[in-house]
Amino acid sequence: MGEMSVTTDLLEHEEKKSLESREFGFWIYLMTDAVIFALLFASYVVLSKNSAAGPSSKELFDLGHTAGETVLLLLSSLTFGLATISMSEDRANRVVQWLLVTLVLGLGFLAMELIEFHGMISQGAGPETSGFLSAFFTLVGTHGLHVTFGSIGICVMVGQVLVKGLTLPVRSRLIRLGLFWHFLDIVWIGIFSVVYLPGVM
């Protein structure tokens, strides 16, 4: 029995060390992702005036709609923060509740984005129309894809919290997913101020 617990201690110690590395590695992953977004932003800025025969950003963007998306995503970042606080208070049920609220807000954001995309495509402003729209759909769509993966991640983590409870690895994963989610918030603020605001001005 004594030997068993020594082994378990060792595994736990090693796990803690490995989780620290994972958190550091995740920051670096986010940096590589930031480079991807930086280049997509740069491509957008280069192509943003190239609307060719298609509509320009002024004719397409609806700042009210974008404001709605922004509110949903910023609120979801707040609720993820509340989930993290509940985690530090060891309240697993509360964590699940806030995660579900975050998920609903994230899905709401995605729904609004899809409505916007659908509207643009149905009035002949799809990504194959012009360089400007290619860059727009790629940049905003890549962000949306990230939000989709983040939402899948939230579903997985809700399952893990329910099944495993707030174990050390689960906490670490939640922290990393939180970093991802807040990162997407920052990217969205970039999209709002580089794509939508100058687009309607």
Partner: peptide, 23 residues
Amino acid sequence: QLALDRTLGFHFFTNGDGGNMMM
């Protein structure tokens, strides 16, 4: 981006329609 141009008809690097090859 080049794969999107080729597969889905985007215009990142095309000759016309607002693409930019130098990018």
